[in-house]
């Protein structure tokens, strides 16, 4: 039974230097050889915006961009992305200005409890980076790995469509009557 002969963890993994550019900033930390990227990001680089919903690849809350590709950080070995550029939700905004995708999620109900939001934002930003004119089908394929229990996805898809319009230059970054509310620093400095 539990705790008798069976002791699960005997040897220890060695520690190595892990370095990567996270949201434009170089990080060098010591991480064990067997580390998972999600744990390193949350525990060592302070990116608490990257969420852990299942740890098993089934919720997408942990999605980050690695060299522009959206990937599940809970299923990625940390040391395999040594030297890569990593973008988390914290790295989407342009300085203190929200990225269109963030603003649209806020304005179109793309985020309710918000726990899945970081993953959705990264996955959809990765889509928009390559395709500013995605069809509804392309949008749903891009977010099929993200689970949302609150919104029923519909307003998320609408948010992404609205952001795509901004990317295409068809809509203003300021879309709703509450735009001022959605940009935390309307006159803030550009970075």
């Amino acid at each position: 039974m539990v705790g008798e002969e069976h002791v699960s963890m005997i040897p220890a993994a060695t520690s190595k230097v892990w370095s990567a550019e996270v949201n434009g900033q170089k990080h060098e930390v010591i991480a064990k050889s067997n580390s998972i990227l999600l744990d390193v990001l949350r525990d060592k680089t302070g990116c608490l915006g990257v969420k852990r919903g299942c740890d098993m690849g089934t919720c997408g809350c942990c999605t980050v961009m690695i060299d522009g590709v959206p990937r599940l950080s809970c299923l990625t070995m940390a040391h395999e992305v040594n030297g890569c550029e990593i973008t988390t939700v914290e790295g989407l905004a342009n300085g203190s200005h929200l990225a269109p995708i963030q603003q649209c999620f806020a304005e179109h109900g793309g985020s309710q409890c918000g726990f899945c939001t970081p993953g959705f934002l990264v996955a959809s930003q990765a889509l928009l980076n390559n395709n500013a004119n995605p069809t509804e089908k392309e949008i749903s394929c891009a977010i099929e790995g993200n689970l949302c229990r609150c919104t029923g996805y519909q307003q998320i898809v609408q948010s992404i469509q609205a952001a795509a319009a901004i990317h295409r230059g068809e809509a203003d970054a300021v879309t709703s009557n509450n735009a001022a509310h959605s940009d935390p620093h309307p006159d803030g400095p550009e970075m």
Binding site: L48, T88, V89, Q102, F115
Partner: peptide, 19 residues
């Protein structure tokens, strides 16, 4: 009666909402 974004939406979309 107006379509109003959540008052804490910005925290959520920037990863600053602490769970």
């Amino acid at each position: 009666g107006k379509r109003t974004p959540l008052v804490d939406a910005n925290a959520k979309v920037t990863g600053q909402a602490w769970y």
